[in-house]
Amino acid sequence: MADITLTVKRTSTADEAGPSWQSFQVPEIAETMSVLDALIWVQQNSDPTLAFRRACRVKMCGTCGVVINGREGLACGTLVRSLVGDRGGEVRVEPMRHLPVVRDLVTDPGVFYQHLAGAGAAFSPKDGGQEPAEILPDSKERKTIDPHRECIYCGLCYSACSVAGLDSGFLGPAALNRAFALVSDSRDGGGKQRLQVAATEQGIWRCHTIFECTAVCPKGIPITAAIQGLKRKVVVSKLKGLIGLDR
């Protein structure tokens, strides 16, 4: 098995010169070695000061999101083999975009969480709802909401979103996906107000259907479809209101 070159974009808090790229030679310890394995190997064998985040290591927690060879991905969920083949080669890792870098590959997700809160990400049960509420597994509603409830809030979609990069006020894919999941859920009592919070010029109307969020989502959530779903809900309610059918 060939060595790989792991090139990491490093930012030190003390270093005012800005980020710099540093390369490490890493042995391919197994065919199933992930980018996270390579980062851990470097930390243990080459440079203990290399900073990155990780927790579950099995694509569940959404902690280790980085940009790998220019593409957002979970370090634990991206196999080195899938990037360089069996002849070795270079893997470039950098922190997620549109978020302030704390150190090396560690970013500050504050803005991302702020937007989730701004879009009203918390579930608010309907008054007088049946407890426990149920949506049957084969119901249409269940099929609609299920994919959108898979979100692990890793922030990869936010990093991939070109609009979020242009306008930090944009709510972003994850927040809007969450809004769609709740608006489509009959157990949620947010109702029309959720649509109003999402349907602003820094909400759904700012999305230009670039599909980058959908492309990088490690859970395969059709995020763009969720945003388009919100748009259609607003269009329908607006046009109904116009001809007086909304009451």
Binding site: L195, V197, A199, T200, E201
Partner: peptide
């Protein structure tokens, strides 16, 4: 802040 559908 969101009193109505803005930007529709």
């Amino acid at each position: 802040q969101a009193t109505g559908v803005i930007g529709f």
